[in-house]
Amino acid sequence: MRKVSIGYYAHHHGSGHVSRALQIGRFLDHPPTLFSSAPLPDHDASHVTFCRLDPDTGNALANPTPHGLHYAPTGLRGIVERTGRMVDWFRAQWPCVLVVDVSVEVALLARLCAVPTILIRQNGIRTDAPHRLAYDSAVALLAPFPAALGAKPEDDAWGGKTVFTGFISRYSTPARTLPAAPNTVSVLIGHGGTMVTLADLCAAARATPAWRWSVLGPIAPDSAVSCPANLDLLGIVPDPAEHLRRAQIVVGSAGDNVVAEMAYLRCRYIALSEPRPFDEQILTAQTLERLGLALHCPDWPVAPAWPALLQRASALDASGWNAFTAQSGAETAARAIQAISDQAWKHGIENRQS
């Protein structure tokens, strides 16, 4: 029986979608084809076949997106080029499936080409018409987090076809082996946009002079802003693991990849829910706080609030993450993708060979 080819679409926004695809790809029996308009990171990605897509942005014609879709501009040549590449792959690699992380329109493109789809499911309120259509059309959904962080079963219309993989992280470290450096804070700034400004960071550091602050990510010095001596701007760090592992407190967004890193590195974590569509990060951070795994801040706290907040965060029990990191989420996702792909095509391939 011919193997089912696996394609994987990763959205270009931020770095998390591509990173997740690369982690899952390590555990698939055969290299998947990774479609994205985002660049691959510098480290080895030999376990995937990369198909670079044209950007889907530019000066579009002035036609509104129709109800039922999230993003469907007209007049952009890049969109016909990227969809053409995917359709050509469907034809050449038949039988195939497409994992979609994330795009309603890409999921529907594949389904309209008769290709079974497996959608990466994000947290948040996804009951809008486009998400309903994409989720309904998929053969399965993969949630890259534990079931405890998902919707309540009674509120979940797609629970029956959702596989909760557990956290998917580039780290698989057991419990931290080194004690945290006392009175240290690491702030992790991602590439997907942030509410945090240099002025915010300076104000927090000034309000907590006994603490040493390190900022990892795209926050640059500004000659117009005077930074206090206890604030270090480290810029983009390729592998922040040691900074995060050694910090007494980590402040970061409540995005899937950041939460997964906090879990595997056993961090005492202040979850800053960045503004994202469908309240994705708000609901994740609220659940983390309810489970005792993090403190939730819906906005960057005012400077006077930081001393008490850091003391509260210091009391978090980092061993609480242990219950959620017993298995590799990436390996679970890969095994699920392979099983779902084979099952989706089993009947059709057997009929064709008979």
Rank of each mutant, 00 (worst) to 15 (best):
Gln122Glu: 12
Glu280Trp: 07
Pro240Phe: 07
Asp239Tyr: 09
Gln23Phe: 03
Phe27Trp: 15
His43Val: 04
Lys161Met: 03
Pro95Val: 09
Asn59Val: 14
Ser19Ile: 09
Pro116Phe: 08
Asn257Arg: 13
Pro41Leu: 11
Gly255Trp: 10
Val237Glu: 10
Leu53Pro: 01
Leu22Glu: 13
Leu22Phe: 13
His11Glu: 10
Pro41Lys: 14
Thr197Met: 07
Ala315Lys: 14
Ala305Gln: 15
Val251Ile: 15
Ala72Pro: 00
Gly166Thr: 07
Leu233Ala: 06
Gly252Tyr: 13
Asp200Gln: 05
His296Pro: 10
Tyr264His: 12
Thr83Ile: 00
Arg52Val: 03
Ala254Asn: 04
Val259Lys: 02
Gly292Glu: 10
Gln311Asn: 03
Ala241Glu: 13
Ala210Asn: 14
Leu28Met: 10
Asn59Ser: 12
Ala181Asp: 12
Lys3Ser: 13
Ala323Phe: 06
Ala92Gly: 08
Ser186Ala: 15
Leu34Arg: 04
Ala313Asn: 08
Ser19Trp: 02
Gly150Ala: 12
Ala151Glu: 10
Pro277Cys: 04
Val97Pro: 00
Asp29Thr: 14
Met262Leu: 11
Ser15Tyr: 07
Leu178Ser: 11
Ile125Lys: 06
Val104Gln: 10
Leu28Cys: 05
Glu274Phe: 02
Ser354Pro: 00
Asp155Tyr: 04
Arg352Lys: 05
Ala114Arg: 15
Pro277Arg: 05
Ala318Asn: 09
Leu178Tyr: 08
Leu98Val: 12
Ser137Ile: 03
Gly159His: 05
Phe167Ser: 11
Trp300Asp: 02
Ser341Glu: 03
Gly320Val: 05
Ala207Tyr: 12
Ile125Thr: 14
Thr49Gly: 01
Leu288Asp: 05
Ala254Trp: 09
His13Gly: 00
His347Thr: 11
Ala334Tyr: 14
Glu280Ile: 06
Thr127Phe: 03
Asn59Arg: 15
Asp54Thr: 09
Gly150Trp: 15
Val258Cys: 13
Pro218Gly: 05
Ala241Asn: 05
